[in-house]
C-alpha cells in the first residue's frame, strides 16, 4: 500500500473537469485507489465519488493506492493534482 499526501493548488478546486481528468488517470491502473479528505473516503475511479469530495483550493487529500501497480498509480494521480490539472 502506498500513501501520498497532496494539497489542492488550483484556484477552482477539484471541480468537474479536473475530477474527470483524475478519474481517467486512476482508471488506467489495476490498483485500488482511494482519495481521503478529512474523514471522507472515495474511490478515485468513480467520478461521482471524486466530485462528492468537493475539495477546494488548499484542502489536503491523501492518495492511498493498493495493488500490483500501486506505486505508479499513486504517483500518477499525485502528478495530476500537482500539475493543477493544466489550469493556472
Amino acid at each position: 500500500m502506498v500513501k501520498l499526501e497532496i494539497v489542492i493548488m488550483n484556484r477552482l478546486g477539484l471541480h468537474a473537469r479536473p475530477a474527470a481528468q483524475l478519474v481517467q488517470t486512476a482508471s488506467k491502473f489495476n490498483s485500488e485507489i482511494i482519495l481521503k479528505k478529512e474523514n471522507l473516503e472515495v474511490n478515485a475511479k468513480s467520478i461521482m465519488g471524486v466530485m462528492m469530495l468537493a475539495a477546494e483550493m488548499g484542502s489536503k487529500i491523501t492518495i492511498i493506492a493498493d495493488g500490483p501497480d500501486e506505486k505508479e498509480a499513486a504517483e500518477a494521480v499525485a502528478h495530476v493534482f500537482n500539475s493543477k490539472f493544466g489550469e493556472e
Binding site: 468513480s46 467520478i47 461521482m48 466530485m51 462528492m52 468537493a54
Partner: peptide, 8 residues
Amino acid sequence: EKLGHHME
C-alpha cells in the same frame, strides 16, 4: 446530499 439521484 450533493450527488442526489445523479448518475454517471
